[in-house]
Write a protein that binds this DNA or RNA. Structure first.
Lengths: 343, 343
DNA sequence: TGTTAGCACTCCTTGATGTTGAGTGCTAAC
DNA sequence: GTTAGCACTCAACATCAAGGAGTGCTAACA
């Protein structure tokens, strides 16, 4: 366990470094912080902190830089929780005001807001991993040649599909098919359709191959839609503003990780608990982002993960602020999703 | 009009520069191309081409670099149309094979393919700018407390919305409302809903304010959905690989233009004709991309623009190849969209 | 025992300087 | 019209010295 004074020095170093991106030296530290000690004393403490692994030196005769372990300690126990400034809160509310219609837009907007306020890259991942149970299906007329096949699930989601009426088909006949299938499929989970069920469907509409194809396609689509994930992303530009990405190689490595949706999803699925969660430096999975930290929060509904939002930036980031922003938006989004879901 | 020889020299310079990204000098040019002339002669020609505005010199004693005007001439008349290599064609087909289900996925995939093959940034913009005409609406039962309001338009698109049944409402009553509204609204264009129509709707369901709200919201959503644009984007990483973006300032400027969907849409809406279309350097609207060229193609359906695909890269790009790729995918996408639409 | 002043040392950064090489323009000869 | 020759330009690169911020260590001090 570190002495209070060492913790304090570590905290000051981190905060200075986060602000300036320059290694911080002993003299500079005392100049800025009037802490009643001489540079020499600080030097001694810094040397010890380095031995303990909380600081690093880019080279002899440069100042000290926090190590991943240093950041970790900072995030876990040194950092003083920050309130979101009123200005930021009102900004956020202002941005959200404009459109709150489509859930889709809310997520997109959230990613944008998150990146603007934190000045870092942000993600919003929605995992609409909902169980969908078939309720009934029905045909609706459209015109002489076409009709609509409508599929209703227990959550009220309606999938629909326009199809050409097979020549010579009678409307009553279609209604019978719908009736028969509705009875057969009622209560079946569309999340795990198996061959047995499809076979039954096939048997129920032997007369009409085209109709069968459309029906099955629609069932499948509903199935895949219920597993659908969507990733929203904002503020990649901010990364290039960070001095750590002067080095083009690094920037490129990072961008290529981000462009692979697959990888991002992997990143975001790490977390199993609710609440805000910080990954620092090498704790991250992929090599492109091992100089980065990520602050993420997952929100759930009835115990199931339905989405994650996250901020990604250099390890040298304003943890306190970003954590508070993520927290805030996390709650906001949770509210929106819940409200939308009970409708 | 340039002499044949000058055109030839210009073409060679451009192709050399595109490949190497280095200013090309007279000596180097003759060495590589065995064109039976001495460097001195080439120098004379180059000097003339520079005076005419087709070439530029970064500084005295550097080689020549094509100007925007030079590229323009090249694209318009010097460039020999290229066939897509068989390898590329089979690659494309392979990629498309996997999933052809959702239109959505097709666009996303197209953006990805486009950027992979051209090694540049690519866009796919869909402008589902379709006139939608109301046909009828209908209620479908869901459970004791909820029902589904379904809206059918002439193109067969069905919008639907779950709502809570007002307590004490009778099903027959709802059906009457639907009937009444269907009659009133049949044939009305949802693309330009006006207050008069909404007023009529209001009158038709005076009894039930909640129902009114849901109905109007749905009409509005259908309206906005019919104007909905979607932008897909792929391969931003490639830009950072280009030597012209060593300069971080430039890269950042470009990325920030790209991140503003609004701006990108603006860019892509320039074009009014069908077919492939090239914008070079300063011909582009925004300052962030004035070192860039864009190759785009718009596809239409019944005379209406429904989508655009585009490749954006440094002016120094492989025009012939990229044009052929854009062309190819353009036709492919057109086919997919048409097929999807007539279903 | 903890703190501090002093000092030699390290090493990045910056700017000046010289060298190299690819390329040019011009002139005169073919 | 083409070409060889030549003086000139200028970015790129390497080398070198000076400056400055920072360190570690030792010895003195409270």
């Amino acid at each position: 366990m570190l002495t209070e004074r060492r913790q304090n020095i570590l905290r000051l170093i981190i905060e200075d470094y986060v602000a300036s991106a320059e290694p911080v030296g002993s003299r500079a530290l005392v100049r800025k912080n009037a802490l009643g000690l001489s540079p020499a004393t600080i030097r001694n403490e810094m040397a010890d902190l380095e031995i303990l692994g909380y600081l690093e030196q880019p080279h002899t005769s440069a100042g000290r830089v926090p190590s991943a372990k240093g950041y970790r300690l900072y995030v876990d126990s040194l950092l003083s929780p920050e309130q979101l400034s009123e200005k930021d809160v009102s900004l956020i509310e202002h941005w959200y005001q404009s459109k709150t219609q489509r859930l889709d837009d809310v997520f997109r907007l959230t990613a944008k807001i998150l990146s603007r306020i934190t000045r870092n890259l942000s993600f919003v991942l929605t995992q609409a991993h909902q169980e969908r149970v078939f309720r009934y299906m029905k045909f609706l007329p459209l015109d002489e040649q076409r009709a609509i096949l409508v599929l209703v699930t227990d959550s009220g989601v309606v999938e629909n599909r326009v199809f050409r009426l097979p020549p010579g088909v009678i409307w009553e006949e279609l209604e019978q098919v719908a009736e028969r299938l509705s009875n057969r499929l009622a209560g079946v989970s569309l999340t795990n359709l198996d061959e047995r069920v499809l076979q039954e469907v096939r048997e129920a509409i032997v007369q009409n191959a085209a109709l069968y194809a459309d029906t099955v396609a629609m069932l499948r689509e509903t199935q895949s839609a219920s597993k659908r994930e969507q990733l929203y992303l904002g503020g990649a530009t901010h990364l290039l503003n960070q001095p750590e990405f002067r080095d083009l190689e690094k920037a490129r490595g990072l961008l290529s990780v981000i462009e692979e949706e697959r990888l991002v999803r992997d990143l975001l699925q790490v977390q199993k608990d609710d609440g805000v969660f910080v990954t620092i430096g090498e704790e991250n999975k992929f090599s492109g982002i091992q100089d980065c930290s990520m602050i993420q929060a997952t929100y759930r509904l009835d115990g199931k993960t339905v989405g994650t939002l996250a901020v990604l930036g250099p390890t040298r980031m304003e943890y306190a602020k970003i954590i508070s922003v993520v927290n805030f938006l996390h709650h906001y989004l949770k509210g929106v999703v819940e409200q939308n879901n009970e409708r």
